[in-house]
């Protein structure tokens, strides 16, 4: 089984690679469409800002490729947000896999949200065997509202999605590679899907 991390210069992928290594998986970092299409698992990381991230994806034709993938795909942080139709961040179009719009937190709370928040979840798929009300590490200024595709939620200025599932596409807003044991369990679950 081979696992690919999509390489489009999206911030801290080293920690993700290390987290997978601790689970015995040597993930390959690449932006090569053929390698990505032929892999068994795809992780779509993301950090930073939506406009430049979409530009980089387009540069490698990945905006066309990702929606056509049939194997399990896991979007992390901005990677999850880009699975959606649109984001308020620079009024950018995403990959259009989950029909919703990503919006900014209101100024009634500190933005970015930074730290550990409580997560409740579906207890299936990615979240199987993970404690309800576990803590996950989040850093973000924009969020996905609650939708039919929501598989996990948290609360910051109201409830919002921190987990999405649509067909073979999964997304988590938090950083599993930085979320201690619960995060590691989630990555392990993804590798078993």
């Amino acid at each position: 089984m081979n696992t690919i991390i999509i390489d489009y210069d999206a911030g801290n992928v080293k920690s993700l690679q290390f987290a997978l290594e601790r689970l015995g998986v040597n993930a390959i970092l690449t932006n090569n469409s053929e390698l990505i299409a032929a892999s068994d698992r795809v992780i779509f990381p993301g950090q930073g800002e939506a406009i430049s991230a979409m530009k980089k994806l387009k540069k490698h034709g990945l905006d066309q490729l990702i929606p056509t993938l049939k194997q399990p795909v896991l979007g992390i942080c901005l990677g999850m947000q880009l699975l959606c139709d649109k984001t308020e961040e620079g009024e950018t179009n995403g990959l259009g896999i989950v029909p919703t719009k990503v919006i900014r937190f209101p100024n009634t709370v500190k933005v970015p949200q930074m730290g550990w928040n409580v997560v409740t979840h579906s207890n299936t798929g990615l979240f199987q065997g993970i404690e309800q009300g576990c803590y996950m590490y989040l850093v973000h200024s924009y969020f996905v509202p609650i939708e039919p595709e929501t598989s996990a939620k948290s609360n910051y200025a109201g409830e919002y999605s921190v987990g999405l599932k649509k067909n073979n596409f999964y997304g988590v807003q938090f950083h599993p590679e930085k979320s201690s044991k619960a995060g590691s369990q989630l990555l392990e679950n993804f590798l078993k899907i």
């Binding site: 590490y137 930085k178 979320s179």
Partner: peptide, 11 residues
């Protein structure tokens, strides 16, 4: 930093 990242699962 590389060694720390390899060993830690918190930010």
């Amino acid at each position: 930093v590389l060694r720390v990242a390899g060993a830690l699962n918190i930010p």
